[in-house]
């Protein structure tokens, strides 16, 4: 079974989970009004289920996913989540240079002048601009 078909199957499943479990539990029932809070989510999810089901049986495309690219992308996402968490705790100006340097080193940048520019000058310039020129706080 192709990745597309698996993904489409999961979308159908996602639609049913929403219709029968999430929408009833996460949207308050209202008795009055031409449309109620659950009207649009319900319409959207039924449309999703029907169209995804059609796609499941008719779609012949075979998308190939480069797993290595996805793993590397996931690592960058994790790096950024960690950096945002640390920025919240210690401050932007201490964490941003390490974040920028980590990214640059991870993608193979080894020229010291670019590392210095991208890893030190740029993040600190952003910090100076926002905190001291625009007078806004960055965590």
């Amino acid at each position: 079974m192709s990745i597309d078909r698996i993904a489409t199957g999961l979308i159908v499943l996602f639609g049913f989970v929403f219709i029968f479990w999430i929408i009833p539990s996460q949207i308050e029932e209202v008795e009055f009004g031409r449309i109620v809070p659950s009207t649009v989510p319900m319409i959207a999810m039924w449309a999703l289920v029907v169209v995804a089901a059609i796609q499941f049986f008719t779609d012949k495309s075979t998308t190939s996913i480069d797993l290595l690219v996805f793993i590397r992308a996931a690592a960058f996402v994790a790096l950024l989540v960690g950096a945002v968490y640390l920025m919240d705790r210690f401050g932007f100006e201490y964490v941003a240079p390490f974040l920028a340097l980590s990214i640059m080193l991870a993608i193979g940048e080894r020229r010291w002048y670019w590392l210095f520019f991208g890893g030190v000058i740029l993040p600190l310039s952003v910090w100076l601009l926002v905190e001291h020129v625009l007078d806004r706080t960055l965590a």
Binding site: M104, G108, W114, G118, L122, V126
Partner: peptide, 13 residues
């Protein structure tokens, strides 16, 4: 490397 790391930081900010 410089462009995308700077872009990412600007997105966060």
């Amino acid at each position: 490397s410089v462009v995308f790391s700077a872009a990412l930081i600007l997105c966060v900010v």
